[in-house]
Design a protein around this nucleic acid. Structure first.
Lengths: 158, 158
DNA sequence: TCCAATAATGCAATATTATAACATTCTATC
DNA sequence: GATAGAATGTTATAATATTGCATTATTGGA
């Protein structure tokens, strides 16, 4: 996995994400409808978390008929349930999942300057969280680990 | 620190929190005004995250004159800045800090059933996050670690 | 003591994010 | 091609949060 703010062919990211999503949905016998695919593509336009209403604007541009909020939220719910995107709670936004369909426990490094976000799946972090939960007799079901700070590039930029 | 859903004299929690807040503010030469104190007390009414509009309702009950949202949000901002409360991003809510004034990096175990929330400060989790950030050349500034699941009591309750 | 500067609060309006409820259309299967 | 279930459309509204400006309170200095 490259760093999202390293130079790369981003169209490739989008294509990969869509292809992987198709595979996941086919396997699960879930339908990746045009709207859901559009929303997923929109989430993947960048490596930054995207708000629901930004997606809404984008769909409006693309399709002459302006969809209503539930259209977007329903698509986002579908994508969340099928482990194709993550919700970034601290920003009320959404970002593409780098390992779709696996229901992994990700962590996010979010640059407060440029918003570029790095997704990690650190076994160490997850282990530490699992251990702490067990110690507290707490059954872990889901987690948000969101770190805010400055990415390498923005640190250099001063 | 007792577990929040263990039986305890909760009035003591509130009193302690207010006293510690007074100390922190005195040290920092910050003013813990009546409104700020009311909001803090309200956040400490329970060991569950409390929404801003719930606080608003509470203030309305207490003071005959209904405050407007900014009143509450400004008080919450003050309390956040002075490390007296935490924001629970995944619930858009706020909870009292168990170690006020220290700007520590907390973690939260939030029961999805009863909402009782355990605050941890696991050095292991924090170390794992710091390590992961460093490895990604990312400068950590703040973090949200929020775990959802079932607390011991709610597991037993079935 | 009075004045000016700053901080805190009041207040109205509005922005942003998210959901509820119900109608309609689409799709797969028989 | 009937029908059941899924998906989408549509309207309204709920829930969360902020902006901008007016007013009041507090503080420190002349």
């Amino acid at each position: 996995m490259h760093s999202p703010n390293a130079p790369h062919n981003h169209q490739q990211c989008i294509d990969d994400a869509l292809n992987q999503a198709r595979t996941v949905c086919a396997t699960r016998q879930q339908k990746l409808t045009p709207i859901r695919e559009q929303v997923l593509a929109c989430v993947w336009r960048s490596h930054k978390p995207v708000g629901a209403y930004t997606i809404l604007e984008e769909l409006a541009k693309q399709s002459s008929r302006r969809p209503a909020p539930p259209t977007v939220y329903r698509a986002l719910d579908f994508l969340l349930e099928n482990d194709l995107i993550h919700r970034i709670a601290s920003l009320n936004a959404f970002i593409g999942c780098c390992d779709p369909g696996n229901g992994h426990r990700g962590q996010f490094l979010i640059c407060r300057q440029c918003q570029e976000t790095i997704e990690l799946t650190s076994a160490k972090i997850n282990q530490a969280i699992s251990d702490a939960a067990r110690k507290a007799e707490f059954t872990l079901e889901s987690q948000f680990v969101e770190v805010s700070g400055l990415c390498a590039r923005c640190q250099e930029a001063g």
